[in-house]
Design a protein around this nucleic acid. Structure first.
Lengths: 230, 230
DNA sequence: CGAGAAGTTGATGTGAGTCAAAACGAGTGG
DNA sequence: CCACTCGTTTTGACTCACATCAACTTCTCG
């Protein structure tokens, strides 16, 4: 019951892929796994390098990014607690995985993890369902990147963040206040913009009364409807 | 052996998901399936509607597209023969699926198809692997949509098409000639551009000697290296 | 051959990128 | 507690790639 003990305090025990395993099966997986911490800016995987690991994200936020040969960068996905990291059966890593803040992971060597996956149909099915969901999300993001204006991208992004990173709010429908887990530069990478454009659009939304900015990190959504209109 | 007979002549018998099934298993699937043809412009699935079917694409090309509330459209994926269509376990369809030319499909009602998937681990695994590959592709496309110039997008797209739709070529490394399965407008939808920009960039590539255009459809890749440089 | 669709080309406008400088904020040491 | 510094953010002036609007040309197919 050692594994059950290790995992019993796990914040994502019943939300990550592990949710498909019983305590005994969890033992097998745990024999392979290893906790790991990353601090802001540290990279777990480099695009193009050999793909050695898969992982479950326990806490914090990771970014998945792609780079053109000449150095232009684009964040192609954000990973939140309970999300799965890595690509089983791929020899090379597709994208670079970097911590946006302090991060805790449950890391598994890829090959043995593949074997566990192959032996546990329910886990494999859960991964399939999540991958299908991730694919839908990525495709939705394609629409946003290609067809929305900078203003629309920002508004959508702020609403998304507000739902995910729940901060304090006075009343249920009232203004929400929280801290960005991303810098302006990282937001620009996510939205396919430049840092200056992000800053300008935020200033504009502030001037219009839709949001309020406190310092570089703090933000309050003052008028949700106004954001949704964009 | 009826099913084996039906499928024995199938162009994608060993490239589509069916590749994971033996002839007996194929019988089960075939009992559910139904051949269907679409002509250019016909739509198989509408985004937002109930998700009723999955399918294997036998021949032709399909586009997957997303639309903003105000009508801006973006193609978020192209499907080629042997590709899988639809999203199992989703109640609503994510995207609109439309034929770019004449198309043949092997269509299955979604719910029964899910049961087959659940009963055939190897097929489920194959679908997982393909979904992971599709996810990688979609993310790569995000980089292209967000960070490449119109010229770069076109060059990349032409190279991709040349590899996929193999036409006639004089020598192995020499010029390739083939027909677009897409109109200028559809290319614009794929690349996140307007029809005019696509046309202009093609003209420019022609003027530079990288390609040759014959009529609205025909194209010859004259200088592959020049395209790769962009 | 003719009509309608698809594609090309040109003139003009504009949203976002680029370059540059100022303002701000967080952390350090006097 | 304040002065100093480094990194981030904001703001401004300018540029440019692509969109838009519009006219014209070329294909396609009955």
């Amino acid at each position: 019951m050692i594994a059950a003990h290790i995992c019993s305090g796990c914040a994502v025990r019943d939300r990550a892929l592990c949710a498909s395993l019983d305590d005994v099966e969890l033992d097998t997986l745990n024999a392979l796994g290893q906790r790991r911490r990353l601090t802001r800016g540290q990279t777990l995987v480099w695009a193009g390098e050999e793909s050695l690991v898969c992982a479950n994200l326990l806490s914090g936020v990771l970014k998945l990014s792609a780079v053109t040969p000449d150095g232009r960068e684009q964040v192609v996905g954000l990973l939140y607690p309970a999300d799965f990291v890595g690509r089983p059966w791929a020899e090379l890593a597709d994208f670079t995985v970097t911590a946006l803040g302090d991060v805790e992971l449950c890391v598994f060597p890829r090959k043995p993890f593949e074997r566990v996956l192959e032996d546990h149909v329910r886990m494999e099915r859960l991964l399939l369902q999540r991958t299908l969901a991730a694919l839908e999300e990525a495709r939705g993001r394609m629409l946003a990147l290609a067809r929305l204006s900078a203003r629309e991208k920002l508004a959508g992004f702020l609403l998304d963040m507000a739902d995910r990173v729940q901060g304090c709010r006075a009343t249920a429908s009232g203004p929400v206040t929280f801290d960005f887990p991303l810098t302006r530069g990282e937001m620009a990478e996510v939205l396919g913009l430049t840092i200056e454009t992000v800053s300008r659009q935020l200033s504009r939304l502030k001037a219009e009364g839709a949001i309020n900015l406190m310092g570089a990190r703090g933000i309050t959504i003052r008028d949700r409807a106004l954001l949704e209109a964009a």
